[in-house]
Amino acid sequence: MVETRGKKKAFSESTALNAAMEVFWQKGYAGASLSDLTSSMDINKPSMYNTFGNKETLFLKTTEHYIKTKMLPHMALLNAPGLSLKTRLKNHIMSIVNMQCDASNGSAKGCYLVLCQSELASGTVPPNAAKALREVDLAPSNLYEDLFLKDKEAISAKLHLQAAKNGLAIYTLLKGTASMARTGITAIALEHAVDTMLNGLGL
């Protein structure tokens, strides 16, 4: 049992993390106040500190939660059997774009990570959180680079010769669609940009 709003109440840590994630996703690290977080999580500040630690520790946990629940499901699409590389890439990219543009379940639009990473230059993100965001920022480009280096169709199309550049191009596209999604651009409208990118790679 955890005490919340003066009463003993059991709550799901996963549900609370999801609520905190939505606040950071909407407002960024600096913009998310403790009051915003505890109100959304439906717990008081002592309960938050006792269960999740301070704001920075909570942010690290919500970042891990975001990666596991929101990003990892898209990864399997890159290696779906029986599909061409272009189809796999498009399914993967559009799956992410659809998530970025979807606010039907109360989620903020765009990308949690892209929004928070944009705050790094301001110096408002504390050291451990900043380190985590920078480390996470390296992963997508490396993932796509690895795909281009190892995928047989990619090698046949000679995409492995510029694997790092091709990986960065896809990640740059997804950062751009995240920003556009926050302004209200639809996934249908952004699909043309995805097709143009894939055609530009020679797929």
Rank of each mutant, 00 (worst) to 15 (best):
H65I: 03
A20Y: 03
S104Q: 07
K61A: 12
L203A: 09
T183Y: 02
A108P: 01
M99Q: 07
I188L: 04
E191H: 13
M180D: 08
A80S: 14
S107F: 04
N50C: 02
M94I: 10
R134Q: 14
H160K: 13
K70L: 06
L60N: 15
S84F: 00
K68W: 03
L113R: 00
L149P: 02
I96A: 10
N79G: 11
R88A: 06
H192F: 07
R88L: 09
G202C: 07
T63F: 03
C116H: 09
P126G: 06
H92W: 13
M94A: 01
A32M: 04
A193L: 14
D102I: 03
L173I: 09
L115I: 04
G202H: 08
I155F: 03
K9A: 14
Y66N: 15
S95I: 02
A30F: 13
D36I: 06
N91A: 11
N105L: 02
A178H: 05
L17H: 09
G123Y: 08
T62P: 02
L203D: 06
A154R: 08
D137E: 14
E3R: 15
F24L: 11
L78Y: 09
K165I: 02
K55T: 08
E56Q: 14
A154I: 08
K61R: 15
S179I: 05
Y66E: 13
G53V: 10
N50W: 07
G184E: 06
T63Y: 04
H192M: 09
C116I: 14
L173V: 11
H92L: 02
G53N: 09
D102Q: 01
N54F: 01
A139R: 11
G106I: 02
V136W: 11
L77S: 13
S33R: 13
A164D: 10
N91Y: 01
R5D: 12
V125F: 08
Y112M: 12
A76R: 13
N44A: 14
F52L: 11
G167A: 11
S104D: 00
E56G: 05
D42A: 13
V194S: 03
G176W: 02
T63V: 04
N128Y: 05
G110Q: 03
C116R: 12
F24Y: 13
I67L: 12
R88N: 08
L168T: 08
K70T: 12
R134I: 06
K109G: 00
T172E: 12
L113P: 06
A16C: 11
L173A: 10
S179T: 11
L89K: 05
L34M: 15
K7M: 10
V125W: 06
L115A: 01
K68H: 12
A169E: 12
N142W: 02
P73G: 09
I188N: 08
E56P: 05
Q117W: 05
L149I: 11
L85R: 02
P127G: 01
